[in-house]
Nucleic acid binder design. Structure first.
Length: 125
DNA sequence: AAGGTGACTGGCG
DNA sequence: TCGCCAGCCACCT
């Protein structure tokens, strides 16, 4: 994905100080990983944290996703909790929208509102 | 600089 | 399986 992943929300832009250039901020790395998730696939917050080398930072991932500007194609909706459930509380990216976007990609929910990891889970590789 | 918050998780009853 | 609890970690006052 080459279109300059540049534009971040105001807050994240502020975090991007010169000194931070070499080592990308956590938020920014979350952004990159999320962009690698293929359509119709999902990953958990903890999964992303693990890919970044900080398996305990799941909460930080959620934090980042709400902060991140997604007008550039960041598929934030492909991230769900460990149970395959939608758990967003973010005002701009509500649960209804997330479900709609996932279903539009072919992701199926069971009657409890859960997604089957075996069918739709993504593992980079 | 220290404390509070939260799109999380694993463990346990 | 389900709910609850206590860590955990990045961010924001």
């Amino acid at each position: 994905v080459s279109p300059t992943p540049g534009t971040l929300s105001g807050r994240e832009a502020v975090n991007r100080s010169p000194g931070n250039d070499r080592q990308m901020s956590f938020t920014r790395r979350v952004y990159h990983v999320v962009q690698r998730i293929p359509p119709g696939r999902i990953i958990s917050y903890g999964g992303i944290a693990a890919l970044l080398g900080t398996p305990r930072a799941a909460r930080g991932v959620g934090q980042a996703l709400c902060t991140l500007a997604d007008e550039h194609g960041t598929p934030w909706w492909r991230v769900v909790n460990r149970n395959g459930e939608i758990s967003t509380r973010c005002a701009h990216h509500g649960p209804l929208l997330q479900r709609m976007l996932l279903e539009a990609e072919g992701v199926q929910f069971d009657r409890n509102g859960r997604i089957d990891w075996k069918r739709f889970g993504w593992e980079p590789g």
